[in-house]
Design a protein around this nucleic acid. Structure first.
Lengths: 338, 338
DNA sequence: AAAATTAACGGGAACGTTTTCGATAGCGTT
DNA sequence: AACGCTATCGAAAACGTTCCCGTTAATTTT
């Protein structure tokens, strides 16, 4: 931008002082109506734009908050961001989105980037690698407000917003049991994600509560379509007795599992029922449509933003609270049967 | 952040001047090795972080470039952003992502926001509302480097990176013709998008080149699943003769169309073939898998970033070029037949 | 009529950097 | 002994704002 006109230029053009120009632009009380109008007119005429660096250098703020998400590809995070934007824009904040690409080091870089850009707070969903807890701690110790959502470090006493993954997993698995399935397995998420553990626990709870033994019924998978596909292919290749239902860590894994089953000639849900988690666009596109847990993504974003604003307006000894949102099990074709 | 230590603090702690500290931190030649090490050590000890506002105020730059995309939901734009990041991070720039939500006014707000944040350039894909051409023009006149991708304003002489939508549409439709379809219709995209017109033109070209009359064979649809679904439902309700193939503006529309056909008891591709455009995650998830045009999204982002860097390093009279990337028609089940 | 208040503005320091221009000291040259 | 180098550092201006103090003139109060 070659556009270098400053308040000095306006002042000079009008034969007044920069102080007055500054006051006029910020609508101060001690400036005559007429001069204010002249300043505004001249500003428009000269196509003036305030220099945010100078302004922020002065008032020691940036009006920006940072976001770190692990990926862009599922519709989950974009939706959360929409919610964040909604309440943050309302509160006159801008957001600075970065993505860690599920990489620990990239996340660390982003943290430093955001700190260097002097964001006034950070909303973050961790990578599935984990391991940056010290950095979070350091940041919080330095007074940077942090809010976690969805993927939250267990060991950290910070504001978090999540859904009750354990209970929803229970519900999902109980639904499978109610529809007559007894031989249910679970495709696990990434090991160092708390949500993985939570959903696995919900799975186990549901089984034992119904007199089924959860031991040895969880298989490693992951997070992507291919993870689910490979896990099921491996299962089929082993030639052991097959389950009659699979509870998957998330939708992509569920879809991958469905693919593998179809390719091997099995019918979903008749031979094997499938349920996913964290409903995205694909759930109603795949055939049969996927039974899965719909998370209140937008509301999750709103809530995270609210927690951050709370901290901001209440800097001292803010006891970090964890808000837990309701989710809904959407029952569809992939688990149908009476 | 209550962390207010500056180079002054370092200077005071070491009994040297701020100039030296500054030089030491920026690795200048005229500072003794030993003092530089002491400065660095003290900086680490005090947990110093440079104030970007002050720094940027000085050197009149921000190292940030802005991105405006219309939405987050398809995987298209996130993929492009990955490409942009790749080359921009390499060149030591940060990116500032905003989304217009397909809204003209929101896009305008974003433009102003980015300008206020003094980004050094903007990469943008316009909304389907359009109408901000004057703002683009003004920005460019003020010396702000702009690069458009995918959705580019026709009337503007600016760097653009796109694929040859017309030719790819032709290819897609010719594929339908080669597989024996004669009665082909097109579901249109948003009216004020150049890509809509381009794909429609390609559709028409392919028809007339094969002795088929394109007149009256284009139906308004849109951009979302429901647009395609509703368009086909309307078509079916009208009770006229049905086509044997539908070329859709994009994948969601194609998927919507498939849904409507299936619901009405038609078989894809036997009764009616479907082809989409701009392949996303859903293309291989839907059943039958979707024949569609795969765009080089990541490369598109890389190229856009490169064009921006070109402009940045070559500020004056930079003749804006349009780079046209190759795309690929991925033939799948939805258009199968010999 | 003197004093006090108010309305409107200007001067200048400050925010945390970078950078230009010296300054100083040591040391070899002549 | 006077000179010029080189190496290393400090003083101070500048970047574009904001804001605390004045200051002046007009207006009101006593």
């Amino acid at each position: 931008m070659s556009n270098n006109i400053t308040i000095k230029d306006i002042a000079k053009a009008l034969g007044i002082s920069t102080s007055t120009v500054s006051r006029a632009l910020s609508d101060a009380w001690d400036v005559k109506r007429e001069t204010r109008d002249r300043v505004l007119a001249m500003a428009k005429q000269l196509n003036y734009h305030p220099n945010l660096n100078a302004k922020n250098l002065q008032n020691k703020r940036t009006g920006t908050i940072g976001i770190i998400i692990p990926e862009f590809f599922s519709s989950f995070f974009p939706n959360v961001i929409m919610g964040i934007q909604e309440v943050l824009y309302e509160a006159d904040f801008h957001i600075f989105i970065t993505q860690s690409n599920e990489s620990r080091s990239q996340e660390l870089e982003n943290l430093n980037l955001l700190r260097a850009h002097m964001v006034e707070g950070i909303i973050i969903s961790t990578t599935n690698e984990g391991g940056n807890e010290d950095a979070y701690r350091q940041l919080m110790a330095d007074g940077m407000p942090l809010v976690f959502f969805n993927r939250c470090p267990t060991t950290l006493n910070a504001p978090k917003v999540m859904i009750d993954d354990c209970r929803m997993a229970e519900k999902a698995v109980e639904h499978l049991i109610e529809t007559g399935r007894r031989n249910i397995i679970h495709l696990l998420g990434p090991v160092n994600l708390e949500v993985s553990a939570m959903r696995a626990r919900g799975f186990a709870n549901a089984l034992s509560r119904n007199g089924l033994d959860p031991a040895g019924r969880s298989l490693p998978a992951g997070i992507f379509i291919k993870d689910g596909q490979e896990a099921v292919e491996k299962l089929l290749a082993e030639g052991g007795p097959l389950p009659d239902a699979i509870f998957c860590f998330n939708d992509p894994v569920a879809i991958g599992a469905m693919k593998a089953l179809k390719n091997a000639g099995f019918k979903v849900p008749d031979d094997i029922a499938i349920v996913g988690f964290s409903e995205g666009t694909m759930a109603t596109v795949v055939e049969p449509q996927l039974t899965t847990v719909l998370q209140p993504t937008k509301e999750m974003g709103r809530e995270a933003a609210r927690l951050l604003l709370d901290q901001l307006s209440n800097p001292r000894h803010h006891t970090p609270q964890t808000v837990c949102l309701d989710a809904r099990l959407n029952i569809r074709g992939s688990s149908a049967r009476g």
